[in-house]
Computed example of a mutant assay.
Amino acid sequence: MKYTQLGRTGLQVSRLVLGTMNFGGETDEAGSHAIMDAALDAGVNFFDTANIYGPDDDSKGRTEEILGSWFAGGADRRDKVVLATKLYGDMTPGSTWRKAAWPNHNKLSAVNIRRAVDASLKRLGTDHIDIYQFHHVDRDTPFEEIWQAIDVLITQGKILYAGTSNFPGYKIAQANEIAARTGRVGLVSEQCLYNLAERRAEMEVIPAAQEYGLGVIPWSPLNMGLLGGALRKERDGTGSRSIKSVRSAAGLADPAMRARVEAYENLLAKHELDPGEVALAWLLTRPGVTGPIVGPRTPEHFRSALRAVELELSEELLGALDEIFPGPGPSPEAFAW
């Protein structure tokens, strides 16, 4: 495994991030433990989860519990893992991502930050979270309040760093400018939607992250499966019935996207390369990227992702990929003229 520093911090993390969203849903507890065993054996030390993850609205938090049971199975497991989780969504039964069941039980108020971190620590069976991430922008809570609450958690030893997920570039700047004015470290990472087929993050999110020293952690590196051999699986009838596969099929219904995916798979077939591995390897060549989040459902899926770390893409191939999936180009030129 290869390692890098997370943004401007001294924290060493693996170039692949183990995503756990499938744990407790598409992958049962035993299978989840097997994937985490394989990850640790391979040197992957960066695990990502969220308090909201679970198979349904009545089982939120289940994924964190599965990580907690795995940590409990070995005295040194927790010490070897850089653990990241998130808060924002409402955790009360009957709530949804965008609708709270009870006031003050979602978003980023100081009240909810305090409540959410203690609940996550209990489910995870640990005394601290390495990277505590804001899962979404909270338009109602000022960053002054957010940073005050985060300061308390750092002082208490409950978290070490703060990061974001799904933040636009201007909010990354705003958060870190307010932190800097009061001598705080500020944000150290941003998780964003970023892959070959979805490159809008290159316009402002990634430049902002680089300017402020945040590590970029792309999620959905295969664009909901579209970049993982979707057309081949469609022809062979080997696709799964997962939510990602359903969304992948929906993406292929767009004629323009279908044509690009077909060109992508044909190009890689000529080079005898696996589409999913190339999609991950491409992200590892991108400026500012710490490592993509991979969300395997099985140990076999995880082993395929591992091969991407060692895969070297030629300049010729990188150029051909840019022709199929062109990026927006540098800003402000990308949107100004």
Rank of each mutant, 00 (worst) to 15 (best):
Pro218Val: 03
His128Tyr: 15
Ala34Val: 04
Lys158Thr: 03
Asp76Met: 05
Glu316Gly: 08
Asn166Ile: 07
Gly237Ser: 11
Glu315Trp: 10
Thr290Ser: 10
Asn51Gly: 12
Arg241Met: 11
Gly291Trp: 04
Arg8Trp: 12
Ile154His: 04
Gly25Ile: 04
Val261His: 03
His271Thr: 11
Leu317Lys: 06
Ala179Gln: 06
Glu145Val: 10
Gly215Ile: 09
Thr96Ala: 02
Tyr132Met: 06
Met257Lys: 14
Ile172Trp: 08
Thr85Trp: 07
Gly169Glu: 02
His301Gly: 11
Leu11Phe: 01
Met36Ile: 03
Ser240Asp: 14
Ile172Arg: 06
Arg258Gln: 12
Ala75Val: 15
Ser240Met: 07
Glu272Lys: 15
Leu108Lys: 04
Gly73Arg: 05
Ala209Val: 08
Pro287Gly: 08
Ala72Tyr: 01
Leu121Met: 08
Leu108Pro: 05
Ala173Val: 14
Val278Glu: 01
Asp254Ile: 08
Lys158Ile: 00
Leu222Tyr: 10
Ser245Val: 01
Thr238Ala: 01
Asn106Pro: 00
Val13Glu: 05
Ser304Cys: 03
Asn266Thr: 15
Met203Lys: 12
Lys158Asp: 04
Glu26Leu: 13
Ala269Val: 02
Ser95Met: 10
Ser69Val: 08
Gly31Phe: 11
Ser120Gly: 01
Glu333Lys: 13
Ile35Lys: 03
Gly10Glu: 14
Arg235Met: 04
Ile66Lys: 11
Leu16Ala: 05
Ser14Leu: 06
Trp282Gly: 00
Arg200Thr: 15
Thr290Pro: 04
Ile129Gly: 07
His301Pro: 01
Leu6Glu: 08
Ile113His: 11
Asp151Thr: 07
Arg199Lys: 06
Arg258Lys: 14
Pro255Val: 11
Asp322Arg: 13
Ser240Trp: 10
Gly94Arg: 08
Gly319Phe: 07
Glu265Trp: 02
Ala256Asp: 15
Glu312Ile: 09
Leu214Asn: 03
